[in-house]
Design a protein around this nucleic acid. Structure first.
Lengths: 144, 144
DNA sequence: GATTATTGTAACTGACTAAGTTACAATAAG
DNA sequence: CTTATTGTAACTTAGTCAGTTACAATAATC
């Protein structure tokens, strides 16, 4: 369980709130509280999944590649995860007690993981933005 | 994500199939394909959760502490897991952008994890045994 | 009581993973 | 040309995981 999904959600929420204005990896890293290289590794995966786009050079940064309503959190999770398993599988040899048990166990684990991913799938970046942006704006106004 | 839950399910399925006959950690380890000490560490947690009982000395071993119908897989999972989280949380400071985003993200992660655990909760050791034991017996008969 | 089988547990090892750092090439704006 | 930025490789440090070794505690059997 690494932090990539958490960072990726932070990135997607941040980019959504900026409505197309590019955000640099330095700004994202500073906001999240990590280093720019760590963020960029996550950004590369989000780019490969075509969820964001990046431009180099001055004024560059990342923006969402689609409408926030067209991106759900399962897509974000799968973009940054090689093997989306939350419960370890046991490779018991078929025909042994371990193999027969493992077959059942692996099925149950798969079903449980599916339930988790379907919950993520039901939430879009637009919904996240709708929940979060007003609170961010309120926080900024309070300070000025 | 360690192997404790996978091992624990193997143990519970094995013990259920023996219907009260004690099984040693050596037998369990050999069946699963790991070492007795690794299994015993899991057995200790299952004992603390009062899901199994163990007796020392010759003829000793572990047995289920309750009817298999009264044990579900969520209880097994929680018995062997300190912090049942599948998605990492971000401790963003309240009042910052990171904090506001983290609050939303942590809620969504909690909801998704709840969906997974509820799926495990819906399956009992008795159901596992009913699925697995006939296949184990069939496998043994085939060999004789 | 001695022997033996078994659990319970601590200490250690080696391999792997995660997060961060440093360094630098590639790119593009002005 | 200078500067800001992405993209990426190599390395470090800390932590986790599975397994091993060793041994004390317990209990059945002879």
């Amino acid at each position: 369980m690494n932090s990539d999904f958490t960072i990726a959600l932070h990135v997607m929420g941040f980019l959504a709130s900026r409505q197309g204005l590019p955000v640099t990896s330095v700004a994202l890293a500073s906001s999240y509280g990590t280093s720019p290289v760590v963020v960029r590794r996550v950004l590369m995966r989000l780019q490969s999944a075509q969820l964001i786009e990046a431009r180099r050079g001055p004024g560059g940064g990342s923006v969402l590649a689609r409408e926030p309503a067209g991106i759900n959190l399962r897509q974000v999770y799968e973009a940054v995860t090689d093997n989306p398993q939350f419960l370890k599988r046991h490779p018991g040899n078929a025909g042994t007690i371990a193999g027969i048990l493992a077959e059942f166990v692996n099925d149950v684990c798969g079903e449980a993981e599916r339930a988790l991913l379907e919950t993520l799938e039901a939430v879009t970046v637009e919904e996240m933005d709708a929940q979060v942006r007003p609170r961010i704006l309120a926080e900024f106004c309070k300070r000025e």
